[in-house]
Write a protein that binds this DNA or RNA. Structure first.
Lengths: 139, 139
DNA sequence: CCTTGTATCTGTAGTTGCTACAGATCGTAT
DNA sequence: ATACGATCTGTAGCAACTACAGATACAAGG
């Protein structure tokens, strides 16, 4: 008879290696409810299932795309409802896209302003700096 | 004889109004040493000089350009040394500019990825979403 | 069985740049 | 004298982690 291979699941270090998520961060995600509490060994070590691995990698991917943890929470809520509609997801995604574009726009303005300041600068050794002057400009 | 107009200086609320910096934030800047401790009235209220007003507005401008508080600290150190060289300031500024550009670059990659995901989405009412699929992609 | 060494555990505090109270006092106009 | 707004201190919260310290757990070798 074949031995029952009671799969022991992944310890946290392996989860970390597989997803690239820091161990402390994985525990953090559990603490704030982004990840469900995993099983424990007799001694108290976490044992993750393959499903939980998929969840963590979902979180990692989403974070890499700039989704906030709250947005990820919403995505999970939709998925877990399991009658979620694609258009809800689309809405959340385009909302996030809009905020990314707003950030780009803001940073590009900063870029222009900084370029202007740096260009005015003679880079000399003298304590008369157009950059500082600009920053100190009268109210 | 003309009355000695002992200039009372600006109370914190006026500093806030003049610079657009929140009162709590002004006190925070003082606490972390970005702004010097102002004089106090007999009763203990802060009284700011015009010089301090200029400093606060310098901070506000710099923050608006995305400089971190530590960068601003460095700028003040240079200015206060009062033999600072313009090229030091230039270096700090272009360093900051580089980090702004890096952020823009990063966000543009996110933008592209998000656009791609959103475009694949049929926006239907069905629970079969290419966005979710992408996020759940196998390791 | 015992030791060694790595992995993991919990709990707490630090990071950045603010913001938001609560409860007390100040300052000024009437 | 009193009312009202402005200010005071001190603490705790936000996002999203990261970094310890000090205590166990677990797996492999002798």
């Amino acid at each position: 008879m074949a031995k029952i291979t009671k799969t022991r699941g992944y310890p946290i270090g392996q989860m970390s290696r597989l997803t690239g998520v820091n161990i402390e961060t994985i525990r953090y995600y559990e603490r704030i409810g982004i990840l469900p509490k995993p099983d424990r060994t007799a001694g108290g070590n976490r044992q993750y299932s393959h499903d939980q691995l998929k969840r963590l990698s979902f979180v990692a991917r989403s974070r890499a795309l700039g989704f906030s943890l709250n947005e990820i929470r919403s995505l999970f809520e939709m998925v877990d409802r399991d009658d979620f509609s694609c258009s809800e997801v689309h809405t959340l995604t385009t909302g996030h896209l809009a905020s990314v574009r707003a950030k780009i726009d803001h940073l590009q303005r900063l870029e222009t302003a900084l370029e202007g300041m740096a260009a005015k600068c003679s880079r000399g050794d003298v304590p008369d700096c157009p950059i500082i002057d600009t920053l100190f400009e009268a109210l």
